[in-house]
């Protein structure tokens, strides 16, 4: 047992170690200055998993995606300028007003990206590259202050012939404003990792995290 680090109020102590080369299988506990255990080994902490695998999708399944997102003027200006979208309707309110708009228009690419973003945890977070987006239609302008929500339906699901451990899933996604009016619709397809056997899930299985200190 030895001290590995010490701050004003806490000491990290390795209680036992069996060495194999540079690797130590160790249990690390943080003790406060009275010697009371205040934190346990992070490997005891169960992973709170995110995302869905290929096996979790079936045709026709519908997802009402989480959170929603109010787009404000800062979001629109930042996105538009960082992406070099030099269209004055998106960043000059006076110019936009002279074209009949009540405010700057939210850059439609920001609308698309936000609706895709809201759908990622349900559809594509578990891993697998983005293949394509088809048939994106912007039905009406979005203005700062509008709130976007997203909904998707699985339209196709098939095995990938070329990518071991992956399938291909296609979804129809729609983005709505706070009045439940359709603002954007599109179809997108991704490679989606299988629960086991894909390069993504294999990499995740050996991915080192705090709690797996021997790998750090």
């Amino acid at each position: 047992m030895w001290l590995t680090s010490c701050s004003r109020s806490r000491c990290l102590v390795v209680l036992s170690a069996s060495g194999t080369g540079q690797r130590y299988i160790a249990a690390a506990l943080a003790l406060d200055l009275r010697g009371i255990v205040v934190e346990s080994d992070f490997s005891d902490f169960a992973l709170s998993p995110k995302g869905r695998f290929f096996e979790d999708f079936e045709e026709g399944q519908v997802f009402e995606h989480h959170w929603g997102r109010t787009i404000n003027q800062g979001d629109n200006s930042l996105f538009t300028t960082v992406s070099l979208a030099f269209v004055p309707l998106y960043f000059n309110a006076d110019y936009a007003a002279r074209h009949g708009h009540r405010d700057v228009v939210v850059n439609p690419m920001l609308v698309l990206c936000t609706v895709v973003g809201l759908s990622v945890e349900d559809l594509s977070e578990a891993g697998g590259v983005f293949l394509g987006i088809e048939d994106v239609v912007f039905h009406q302008p979005v203005y700062p202050g509008d709130t976007l929500t997203a909904r998707s339906r699985v339209v196709a699901r098939r095995e990938s012939k070329s990518k071991k451990g992956f399938g291909i899933v296609s979804w129809r996604t729609e983005g709505y404003n706070q009045r439940s009016e359709l603002v954007v619709g599109y179809q997108r397809s991704n490679l989606v990792a299988r629960r086991v056997g894909s390069s993504v899930t294999d990499a995740a299985a050996k991915n080192a995290r705090p709690g797996d200190r021997s790998e750090r």
Binding site: F79, A85, F86, M109, L112, D135
Partner: peptide, 25 residues
């Protein structure tokens, strides 16, 4: 977004609206 941004001054500076995107790969 960066590609369409880089193209936007030449293709949409005088736009009234961007209507559709398609066949993104």
């Amino acid at each position: 977004s960066m590609v369409i941004g880089l193209a936007s001054q030449d293709t949409a500076e005088n736009a009234l609206a961007e209507l559709r995107f398609d066949k993104f790969r």
